[in-house]
Simulated assay, not measured.
Amino acid sequence: MLSKNYKQGAVLSFGELLLRLSPDAGGQWLADSALPVFVGGAEFNVASALALWDVPSKYFTALPKNGLSEELAGYVNSRGIDTSKIFYGDGRMGLYFLTQGKDLKNDALIYDRANSAFAELKPGMVDWDSVLEGVSWFHFTAICPAISQQTADVCLEVLQAASAKSITISVDLNYRAKLWQYGKQPQEVMPGLVEYCDVVMGNIWAAEMMLGIEVYGDIHESGQKSIYLKEALSSSERLIEKFPKCKAVANTFRFDGRGTINYYAALYADGGFYSSKEHTADSIVSKVGSGDCFMAGLINGFYHNDAPQQVLEFATAAAFTKLFVASDATTNTIEDITNAITNGQ
């Protein structure tokens, strides 16, 4: 069961703080000598949403020791996030480039993260007992172990420390093909980390790619919601059988085509299966951070011990409304998201 008194502690998000440089597709940024910059990173986006929704939110990352890092830490802190556990070490700031309007899985994505302060973290460098003090929920993503074997080892180290303290652990199965370049495939790394997790979020294809939970049948082009949901139930049941510590599995579905965006999700929790209402739109502003907002919505719901259907509807609406926000992290309040559920946006 996920029900517990999480309010005795904070949610700690673990991951790399990045700067997103976002040129327009036509090259106007060159003529204007102006390149839009956003503070990003999947885990920061989660921490930011939770802080906005008044959930005690802490953030662990590693930054280089310089003035730019001080400004960034101040910015993060100004969003209501506890930055006291940030690790300052050697290396540089991680960057990524993404053309405006494009998806993180698109060819328009370019990473520049080699030798960053976060990538330079090694097992034994951080006092995890100190970092995890006052924490009741720990969140990370599959992006971190995709960086290098060394970073994957750091992930394992902190997961073991959090598990030993009976801290609830969640993971987002973000798949970034451009990061898995160090000779290991996700299925060689992720199962050993997911075995510590209580909540797993992603989609049926990510579970197949990273955990070996096969997608049965030729459903990829079906377009039928009932078939996708049936597969989500099957995938969730098999995932929990494979990873007994896991108590909840969430799957999101976003389909872009023929001029509309369709978004819905499913949640398997404590033996029950739930599906959300479907949200649609003719156009969106940005796809960046939508999944992170869904993850934050899940954590928010479980943190407050909401009923599973309520948890799912809020997380789905949070993710959908994020599609209309230009920055990496959502700016939508609890009221904004609740209105989206009520009004059927």
Rank of each mutant, 00 (worst) to 15 (best):
M1Y: 11
L2E: 05
S3T: 15
K7L: 11
K7P: 04
Q8Y: 08
A10N: 06
S13G: 10
F14E: 10
E16L: 11
L17W: 06
R20F: 00
L21S: 00
G26W: 07
G26F: 11
D32K: 13
P36L: 01
G41C: 03
F44H: 03
A49V: 11
S57V: 04
S57Q: 04
F60Y: 12
A62C: 12
S69F: 05
N77I: 09
R79W: 07
R79L: 14
I86E: 02
D90C: 11
L98V: 00
Q100A: 10
L104A: 07
A119Y: 11
V126R: 07
L132G: 05
E133N: 13
E133G: 10
F140E: 03
T141N: 12
I143D: 01
S148C: 06
V154Q: 08
C155E: 08
C155H: 09
A161S: 14
S163D: 14
A164G: 15
K165I: 05
S170I: 08
L173Y: 03
Y175G: 04
K178P: 00
W180R: 04
Q187S: 14
E188S: 11
E188D: 13
V189W: 03
C197L: 12
M210Y: 02
M210V: 06
L211R: 03
G212Q: 06
S222H: 12
A232V: 00
L233Y: 01
S235G: 01
S236A: 14
I240D: 00
K242P: 05
K245S: 09
K245C: 05
K247E: 10
D256S: 15
Y263L: 14
A265P: 05
G271Q: 07
G272A: 14
I284P: 01
I299P: 10
I299N: 01
Y303D: 04
Y303T: 07
H304Q: 14
F314T: 08
F314E: 03
A315W: 02
T316Q: 04
A318P: 07
D328T: 06
T330M: 04
N332T: 14
N343L: 14
Q345W: 12
